[in-house]
Structure formats: structure tokens, C-alpha cells
Design a protein around this nucleic acid. Structure first.
Length: 441
RNA sequence: GACCCCAUCGUCUAGAGGCCUAGGACUCCAGGUUUUCAUCCUGGCAACACGGGUUCGAUUCCCGUUGGGGUCGCCA
């Protein structure tokens, strides 16, 4: 039989990482088995299910590359089918009408539990049994005639031909109800697998106050979809060897439900950042450009006259110092503005030290003497010659220039930095720095 | 409260009775490389919640305790 899984979110706004992780596992499982991954929008709560909310769900799936094999089934379109099944259940005696609690609201349709213990074999947790005494009848159609979640969920899974229901831990109790309904309807039940919850940094369930809980937040912060995918997939699942950085294909290849853990876990932001850095450096340079431009634009550092060649040079220059697009602007705004800040500590240590400004002035002459092309090799040669002449170390040479042209003591190799910045900028910045601090001394 | 689930370094995890003086990753620390930082290399700190069993032998199996979580709706 062809494997079929589904993701069945109720579109109530942003998609939580716990839910998207369930979607990832459904997708991975279906792809691994050569089956299908379907989407159902559980939009019966019309008040909360807006078109924008549906859009958000679709966007999140698309962003993460979770390709769906069907046109999404909107649960609200299935209402008649749900009610039909309720009638069948009624006529079979598997359900009855009752004014629950005698509220006078009218009669609801109540599903009758079979009166025996129910056991189902969870693909992740193993067999779980519930005693008959702990199983209560429940409403499947409200007194106003609308179907309840349990009815719609089961009926839709049957009509969609779902073979494996992979969902959050919070549904285990429902599974006994659902299993009983499959039996009453006379449909073969799917296999169930319940994923442990993802908890917040305090090890507690997520609350509205917690940040970093929704897919959109990571997207906005500039995380790479493949990095979030990878990190989330490895929360609760592992390939069985020591691999951590995996491509989608490698995960599909290795994914099995047997290797999913049954204890909750938390998403560590520091490690997520590491995942991002790893995936970032695996991206082709041309793929990176757009991401950097978007981040720089957001930071107000982008100007349309900046050439792509220049940006590429900057990216190459910064190398693995950047793990997230936004870190480029944070760490090295000086590539994009003349108005960079002079880090106070760096200035004190490298420029205001005895004789530093004198050295810098000598270096200015040496660097002025270097013509185009202003390559790393050429500028290095000039400063090496100066160091030899004056009996100084390269350290003495490098530090003042670095602070002068970038305002900070940390960054890429100095000569790559100079070559990237270009002759005009370098000389202008050194002159300006000299002016600024010589008068200050 | 009742029922169900969970429990290995700070975090993510490997481990399915002896291969474990418990392995890997992130973070952190030290050293090396480098003009600085980052990368990279080397090394280090750090865990089987507790108590009983079962067994020649338990991180691994069973029971209990403790702790955490889920569910108890005419919500989904």
C-alpha cells in the first residue's frame, strides 16, 4: 500500500515550530517511503481561519521546501460528508442523541465508546492501553448541527486515504477516541506516531510570551530554511551515525520513525546559529548575494550604487566570520559606510599608543606610493618594506591601519581588507583618522 | 485529583545486558596556526535523577520514588 501522510494545521496565524517539525517528519517519512505528503486545512473554526492565516501556512511550508502532493483539502468543504457519517453511526447504534448536561440547547450526537479497553501501538511510544473505565463518550456533532474536531479529523483522514498519522504528543488521548471511531465506521485505522513536544529555553511549554517560537520569526531574522529544517529535524531524531549537517536528500534517505526519540527537547539558539553558519558556507556565492542585500537593506546600510562585485568581494573577505546574513552589517558596517564608528577600546590600544600615529603617517606615505592594482600582495609588500626599514614588526604596522580604515581591532586579514576597500577609500580613511586623532592627542 | 507519557554532559544526542574507565555535536576553557578576530588543528571541563529488584554482569529489563509534561470541552 502506498504510504500517505498529512499535515493538518488549523490556520490561526503563525506556524509554531512544534507544528512545523511535525510537518517535517510527515514529509520526511512520506518521501523516505516513496509515498505522498498531503495537506488539509482544518478551517472549521471560521472566526479564526482567515485567508491570510492560510497564506501564512502555505508560505511556511514553501519556504522550508515541504512540497505538498495535493491541492489542500479544506475541511470546511467536507461538512456534509461528516454529517453523513454521523448519521451512519447513529443508525448503527454506535452513537446516540442527547441533550448533554440538560442545558436545553438541544440534542447533540454523542459517540458511544465500545466499553472495552483500547490499545493502539504507537510507532514512537510503543503500545499504549486505556482502560474502558477511563474512556468516556464524546460529542461528535454539536446541538447546532456542526461537526466536532474528532469527527472531521477521522472522516477526512479516511477520505484522504491517510496511512500514517504523525502528530504532536498532545493528541495521544484523542487517539483512543479516534481508534474507536475507525472501528465503528468499519474503516482500517492508520498507524499513529506521536512526537514529543518542543519546549522553551526554560524547559517549559511555550507560552505567548516566548520568542523564537514561530517559523516566521526565524525567516525574518534571516535564518536559512535548510538550516532551520536541519536543526528541527535533528530535534528528536538522529540518523544513527555522528552526522549533524545533512542535506534534505540525506535526511530523506536516513529517516525512520524508529529513530525518533520519545522525550521532549528544546531548540538551542546558539546551536541553531551554528547550523546556519554551516549551511551558509555551503551555499554558492551567487545564492548568498540576495540574502546579504536583503539584510543590509533592512539595516539601512544598502545603497543601490553598491556593485555586486564589491559585495562579493566583501563576502569573500569576511569568510566564515559571518553565520547569519545580518551579521555582516553588524560586524562590518565599515564596508558600506564612511560613517563607521571608532571602537573606543581599539582606538586606545592601537592608535593612541605611544608612537602609533607617527607610524600610521609613515604608512600613509607607503600606501600612497602603491598604485593600481591595489592588491593584497602589493600593499603587504609596501608595509613589509617599511617595517624592515624602520626595524618594526608587522604587528606594529598592521594594527594602526586596521583601526584607521575599519574603526575596530577585529576583522578580516588586513591586506584582503585593504584590497576590498580599494585605494581611494583606504587613503581617505587613513588621512581622516590622522586628522581626527592627531588633534586629540 | 484521575488517567497517560517522559527522564544520559548546560543544550541536542549515540547507546537496544558485557564493545561504556558512557561516544559525537553546540557552548565554554587552554594550547597551536594567524597581523587581530573568525576558521582550522590539538587537548580539556561536563551526564546515565534516586531506591529496590532480575542477572555472573545493568545506562540499557522490571517495580517504586522523585521530578517534568500531556489529557480530562457541544476548542482544535
Amino acid at each position: 500500500m502506498r504510504i500517505r501522510t498529512r499535515f493538518a494545521p488549523s490556520p490561526t496565524g503563525n506556524v509554531h515550530i512544534g507544528n512545523i517539525r511535525a510537518a517535517i517528519y510527515n514529509w520526511l517519512f512520506a518521501r523516505h517511503e516513496g509515498g505522498e505528503f498531503l495537506l488539509r486545512i482544518e478551517d472549521t473554526d471560521l472566526a479564526r481561519s482567515t485567508p491570510e492565516a492560510v497564506r501564512t501556512v502555505l508560505d511556511s511550508l514553501a519556504w522550508l521546501g515541504l512540497t505538498v502532493d495535493n491541492e489542500p483539502l479544506y475541511q470546511s468543504t467536507q461538512r456534509e460528508r461528516h454529517l453523513e457519517v454521523a448519521e451512519e453511526l447513529l443508525s448503527k447504534g454506535a452513537a446516540y442523541r442527547e441533550d448533554r448536561g440538560g442545558t436545553g440547547r438541544g440534542e447533540a450526537v454523542v459517540f458511544k465508546m465500545p466499553g472495552c479497553d483500547i490499545t493502539y501501538d504507537d510507532l514512537i511510544k510503543g503500545p499504549i492501553t486505556k482502560k474502558a473505565a477511563d474512556l468516556k463518550d464524546f460529542v461528535i456533532v454539536r446541538s447546532d448541527g456542526s461537526p466536532v474536531f474528532h469527527l472531521g479529523n477521522v472522516v477526512d483522514d479516511i477520505t484522504m486515504g491517510i496511512t500514517h498519522v504523525i502528530r504532536g504528543d498532545d493528541h495521544v488521548e484523542n487517539t483512543f477516541k479516534h481508534a474507536a471511531m475507525y472501528a465503528a465506521i468499519g474503516a482500517p485505522p492508520p498507524r499513529f506516531a506521536h512526537l514529543p513536544m518542543i519546549v522553551n529555553a526554560q524547559g517549559k511549554p511555550y507560552s505567548k510570551r516566548d520568542g523564537d517560537a514561530y517559523v516566521g520569526e526565524f525567516q525574518e531574522k534571516g535564518f536559512l530554511p535548510e538550516a532551520l529544517f536541519n536543526a528541527l529535524a535533528l530535534l528528536g531524531w538522529s540518523p544513527g551515525d555522528d552526522r549533524e549537517i545533512l542535506t534534505r536528500e540525506e535526511m530523506i534517505e536516513a529517516f525512520t520513525l524508529e529513530r525518533v526519540r520519545s522525550s521532549p527537547s528544546q531548540l538551542d539558539m546558539t546551536k541553531l546559529l551554528w547550523f546556519n553558519g554551516q549551511h551558509l558556507k555551503r551555499r554558492a556565492p551567487e545564492e548568498q548575494v540576495a540574502g546579504y542585500v536583503a539584510a543590509l537593506r533592512q539595516q539601512g546600510l544598502w545603497r543601490e550604487d553598491i556593485s555586486e562585485d564589491y559585495l562579493r568581494a566583501v563576502i569573500a573577505c569576511m569568510g566564515e566570520r559571518v553565520r547569519l546574513y545580518s551579521e555582516l552589517g553588524e560586524q562590518a558596517a565599515y564596508f558600506f559606510t564612511e560613517d563607521y564608528v571608532y571602537d573606543e577600546k581599539s582606538v586606545r590600544k592601537r592608535l593612541l599608543k605611544e608612537g602609533a600615529l607617527g607610524i600610521l603617517r609613515e604608512e600613509l606615505s607607503a600606501l600612497e606610493a602603491v598604485g593600481e592594482p591595489y592588491t593584497a600582495a602589493n600593499t603587504e609588500e609596501a608595509l613589509r618594506a617599511l617595517a624592515e626599514q624602520t626595524g618594526r614588526t608587522m604587528g606594529d604596522m598592521v594594527h594602526p591601519v586596521r583601526v584607521a580604515v575599519s574603526g575596530t581591532a577585529v576583522g578580516p586579514g588586513l591586506f584582503e581588507l585593504l584590497a576590498t576597500l580599494g585605494r581611494a577609500r583606504v587613503l581617505a580613511r587613513i588621512r581622516r583618522t590622522l586628522e581626527k586623532f592627531e588633534t586629540q592627542e
